[in-house]
Computed example of a mutant assay.
Amino acid sequence: MSENIIEFKQVTKYFSDKAAVCGLDLPIRRGELFVLVGASGSGKSTTLKMINALVAPDEGDVYFDGRRIKDYDIRALRHRIGYVLQQIALFPAMTVRQNIELMPDILGWRKSERRSRAESLLEMVGLPPAEYLGRYPHELSGGEQQRVGILRAIAARPAVLLMDEAFSALDPLSRTALQDILLDIHRQNETTIVFVTHNMHEALRLGDRIGVMRNGALVQNGRPSEIQNRPADDFVRAMFEQEQATPEQVLAAFERLNPQAREVVRRRINQAV
Rank of each mutant, 00 (worst) to 15 (best):
A238S: 15
G142A: 05
D17V: 14
V35G: 04
Q145A: 06
Q220F: 03
I106G: 13
S112M: 09
F195W: 04
A53Q: 12
L33A: 02
T95M: 10
I6E: 04
G207H: 08
G66P: 04
A252F: 06
L48C: 00
V35E: 01
G142R: 00
L218F: 07
I69H: 03
V62W: 05
F34W: 04
L183Q: 15
G38V: 02
A203S: 15
N258W: 02
D58F: 01
A238C: 14
G31V: 07
R267T: 13
F64E: 05
M1I: 13
I154V: 07
R262I: 09
L133Y: 01
P158S: 09
G126I: 15
M103K: 09
M124Y: 10
A217I: 07
A155T: 02
T191M: 05
V265S: 13
D73P: 00
N189Y: 14
A155C: 03
E243M: 11
E202K: 07
E255Y: 14
N221W: 08
P172W: 08
K13S: 10
E263D: 15
F254P: 04
G66E: 05
I193R: 01
V125E: 12
Q244M: 12
R267D: 11
I227E: 06
V219G: 10
D58I: 05
D171P: 02
N189E: 12
F64P: 03
L121A: 08
M103W: 07
T46H: 06
L24R: 01
V84W: 04
V273E: 03
V194A: 02
P128L: 06
A53R: 14
T197P: 08
Q271V: 11
P231W: 06
D105A: 15
L107H: 14
E202W: 05
R68C: 01
